[in-house]
Structures are given as structure tokens and as C-alpha cells.
Design a protein around this nucleic acid. Sequence first.
DNA 1: GTCTATAACTAGATAGAC
DNA 2: GTCTATCTAGTTATAGAC
Lengths: 218, 218
Amino acid sequence: MTRRSRAHQSTPGNEKAILEAALTLAVTAGYEGTTMAEVARLSGLPVGSVYWHFNNKEQLFAELIEYCFEQWKADHTGPTNRDLLRRSIAGSAGGSVDPENRAEAFWILALLFALEKRLAGNLAREKYLDVRKEMFELMVQRVEPQVPASVLAVDPAFGRKMVVLGRALTDGFYIAASAGDEIDFMEFADLSATAVEALIQRKAAEIEGNLDAADAES
Amino acid sequence: MTRRSRAHQSTPGNEKAILEAALTLAVTAGYEGTTMAEVARLSGLPVGSVYWHFNNKEQLFAELIEYCFEQWKADHTGPTNRDLLRRSIAGSAGGSVDPENRAEAFWILALLFALEKRLAGNLAREKYLDVRKEMFELMVQRVEPQVPASVLAVDPAFGRKMVVLGRALTDGFYIAASAGDEIDFMEFADLSATAVEALIQRKAAEIEGNLDAADAES
DNA sequence: GTCTATAACTAGATAGAC
DNA sequence: GTCTATCTAGTTATAGAC
């Protein structure tokens, strides 16, 4: 066999080094732009070793996505951070500039795989699409409690909609960071949170108004 | 000389065919993923001809960005479309799916160049960053008149902030489209427009309140 | 498990006939 | 201006010594 059989034990030393190297490179070079030779060089191992640990480039990236997602989950599911959106957008500020920022590197990696549609059928991209769905559900679980029950009663999908909006904003600000826009990301993190909040309130008020109208009619 | 000297005359037949081929491929394959051989094949010309018209891949893409931007400007500066943000986001729906959708292909191309930071110094990426700035200013000119004078008096940059937010949203929904999210883009186009609108109203109300307070004090 | 050498292939780019 | 043949360098991936 040309491949280790470990399934899900915690990533051992050299494998982790390879994944970290791949991540560092991928964040600035993308999928095609990252070469196995460079990954090997940066990890301090020869190419042969990289191919001993991972079947091929595709699989290396598929595992990289999983590896990053675990880190991201650990960082973003703690009980401390109450404001997911604000935190995510604020994180975009340095995320794309500093290749060492692992917690946020995942998001950049994700954007790359979202955009590179040529990778249809590619193991890594399929893996990403799975992860994207899982991440979405995690966010829904955290956002839904913040939506008033009266709103959810009328539009049960409203919480999910706010997550879609929040994710679009987060993605958008990562793009802005990648493009080097000189904006105050903290300010926009607040502004974005406020905008979503305003949308929820407006919806609640609208429903309230309808209820009043209905009450008045009866 | 190995290169035509036309500077800014309207793109002649074969050059246009090459640019169109490059665009179609780039939208799904990205910069690295698009090969000169494929561009040649799709344009119906041999590789040699492509290199006669364009010095190299870098310059081909730099001109592609300019070429697309001109089209985008023509599509998005007419007097008809009053709601820029709503229109942009709604456009993202099909933009990433149909490689023939030229008007929106530009935005995908833009995202690719925004993310591919490895291309630092690359002519095409530099060109894109210029275009990004110009596009921003065009949007500011169209959004600023919609912001109440009272708000601009207190925060002259508020219009620009709304454009930053709007662009982030647009970028974000293009990502969603690229990832194949099954969402109702029209609905989110409306929701996004409403969110920005709500933010402006909230700001205006806040300022109004302060003015009243100031009036009461005097 | 690690490392070297190299095979098999594909990329961007050019030379030069027409 | 167009097209073919080809060069060079770099890519993924493997074979096989250690």
C-alpha cells in the first residue's frame, strides 16, 4: 500500500507540517498556483514524502479543507463570542494579509474553492461544498435564537435568510481585504451587524403593525 | 516589432474573438487554469496568432479586464436603472452559471483577480485594482444623491460607506452563486437593498434626534 | 517512513515559413 | 497577419535505494 491507513486520529507531525505549508501557500497562490514542490519545500520534506502522506494534490487539498474547518469550528463555536457576524467581518481585516492567520485563512481557502468552478468533480471542491453546508447550519443554530419569535412565526425561514445575508457580507469583506481596500474593517463589521439588526427590527415592526391592523379589524 | 501599435481604437475582429474566448474560459477556470492553447482553440486561431495580437498571457488578461470593464460601464451607467445594488445582486444569479453572460462575467473575473494575491505585480491584477477604484467612484456618484443631505452634513463619507457595503454584498452573492447556493437571488437583492436603505434611514433618524435635542437645549 | 532521480506531460512562449 | 513546429521550464507523480 502506498498510503497510511489512519482514518481520523489527530494529525501527526509531518502530515500537519505539510497541511500547514499547503495552507500558507494556497492562501496567496490558490489551488493551481500552489505546487506540490513548493509545499514540500516549505514543509521541509522532499516531494516523495508528501506523496507518501497524501495520494495526490486533490486529496491533499480535500484534507486541508477538513483540517481547516475543524480549526475554524473550534474558534467560532466557543461560548464567548456572541456576535458571530461582527467577529467574522472584523477577522477579514488581517486574514488575507497575514498568511499565518490560520483561523481566518480557512475563509480565504473557502472563497477560492467557491470561485474555481473548473474544479467541478474535484474531491477538494466537493469537500468544500459539504463543509459550506455544514458551516451554514452551524451559523443558523446561533443566529435563529436572536430572531424574535413573532417574526419566525410568520416567516420560519427568516433566520436562515439572515445567515445568507451575513455570509454574503463576510465573503464580501474578505474580498475587499484581498483586494487591499483601505477601509476600517471594524467599522464595517459594526455597520453590517447594525444593518442585519435593522432588517430584523423592521420585519418585526412590520408584523407587529399587521397584527395591530388585524386586531383593529376584528 | 512583434506587436500591433493600436492604442485605443475599437477592438478588431480577431482580437475580440480572442478576448471573448479568454473571458469564457477564465470565468470557470480562473487565471492559472486558463491556458493560451485553449484560448487559441476556442477563438479558432492558432497559438501563434494569439501571441501576435497579445505579447503574453499577462497582457492578454490586462486587456481583457479593460475590455470587460468598458462593457460593464455601458451596461450600468444608462439612465434606466435606478437601483444599482438590487440590479447587481440580481445579476449574480445567472452570472456565474452561464459563461455567455458577458455583462456579469466581468464581476466574476474581478473576484478572481481580487483573490489571487499571488499575482502581485502582475499587469492584469494591477489593471484590475485600478478598475476597481474607478468602478467604486462611479458607484459613489450614483449612490451619494440618494443619501439625505442631513446625513452627509454630519458624516460626509456616509455615501461611500454605503457603496463599500453594497459592493461587499454584491461580491458576496456572486460567491454564493459560484458555490451553487440554491437561494432566491431576487429576494436577496431586495433584502440587501432594504438593509442599506434601513441603515440610511436609521442614520437620518439618529441625526434628526440629535438636532431636536440640540434645538431643545438652545 | 524518508529521500533522490526521473518519467510523463503540459505550460508559456518563439522562430520562421507562408 | 496567419499558422506549424518546436524549445524550455515547470508540473504532477512514481520508482526504488536507503
